[in-house]
Design a protein around this nucleic acid. Sequence first.
RNA 1: GCGGGUGUAGCUCACUUGGUUAGAGCACAGGAUUGUGGAUCCUGGGGCAGCGGGUUCAAUUCCCGUCACCCGCCCCA
Length: 437
Amino acid sequence: MTTPKIQSIRGMGDVLPVGQKQFLYQSGNWVWLKRQFADWVEAHGYRYVETPVVEELELFKRTSGETSDIVGKEMYLVRRSSTGDEAGDFSLALRPEGSAGVCRAVVEHGLARSHAGLKFYYIAPMFRSERPQRGRYRQHTQIGIELFKEKDAAADVEVIAILSGFYQRIGLKDFVVHVNSVGDPECRPRYREVLIRFLEQFKDAMSEDARARLYANPMRCLDSKDENDQRLFADAPNMLDHLNAECADHFAEVKAGLEKLGVPFIVDPRLVRGLDYYTKTAFEAKCNTLDGAIKTIGAGGRYDGLVEQLGGPATPGIGFGSSVERTLLALESQQIAPPPPAPPRVLVAYMDAGVKYDALKLAEDLRARGIPTEFLYHAKNLGRQLKEAGDLDVEYVVIYGGQEWDRGEVMLKNFRTREQESVRAETAAEVVAGRLG
RNA sequence: GCGGGUGUAGCUCACUUGGUUAGAGCACAGGAUUGUGGAUCCUGGGGCAGCGGGUUCAAUUCCCGUCACCCGCCCCA
């Protein structure tokens, strides 16, 4: 009789404090990165949101666009069933990205009408059913922000500055934000027609992939990886040359603002996002110490029509999502290691089981004072505990038991200098706290 | 979703041209050690050789399938 082992699902890994060789899966790195992000965006007035992992499939169809690859072939479908059996159709999905759910919540709770200055951030898992690879996982975690009810270009500038500033703050170098404007519902369709007319002349010469996108999503033809396509499309018309006055002004202000703030960016007229909902500003942060497609560690843009598309009032919005995994890979590629968690500074030891709980009580007292303290649950002898103290590299060991305990005292041992002193048991916590400063 | 590579103990790796009971180092646990240090020595737990099938007297070894991971493509964060 053997019990079959159950493995984690393909493309979904465990993040653990021990036992993971890869930097990417070491939980200390995750805790640090998430805290850095939360601190950073909270300083900008963003507040934490949490929306469900599962949503109506229709939500993502409506927001990402039926023609997008996300909806077309990467959606993680979930069977609709209240009983857990196989009843129900696949009309639910695990969220592939963060914006749709937040927008849904904004509409559902009427937030766009009732509140000003809607600034949200999330740290949440996203799902796409793609073949896993380095930097591409079926479950990946995104840190992201969403800002609503603000159409001023200063919002675009600040959002991009937040993304760029975050990477800077965690020590990342050699990254740059690619910025583009993808127009609005007024000028983009006009550009689309111009572009299709241009592309049609190469209809027979272009790659099969490009041909398939020609009418469905012609802008995606321009970022074809095919060399021949790149040659053919070299003189393709740019969106930037076809922006209407409003979009052009907006983009000009965004660029000027980014320059003023010293955000490293380059204008990339070929930048096209995989999601259909973006308007005006679109951007991607790329790290040059990563390879190929996973260079993009964070991306976002403006989505002024999204809330309305979900049945809410016309509400401008802008945001970004950044991959925790790719950001960690980027840090690793630059040999940047987050600071380790605070190590224990004190070990409370005991010489016999009779004083074990007196020792544990002191340990708790020290911890309550903010001093990281270790305690061994089943130590048999003092030598073993001191060995452990050495392994942990603590600064002090407090020893319970023996003659000192009989006098109502405990031994306080400076583990660095090996000096020992006996102190009244009831003052031990205070004395240790004083010694540690 | 397509193509390629790799799977032996928790980790790093051996051996076996197909042949006794698959080994070592590290790690882990116990002891030497009932009041004082990172050492040393001893002992121990651990493996259906990823999983399933085939060929064979005999498979961890050869073949097929499958699963997982890694790499490339598509695409994305």
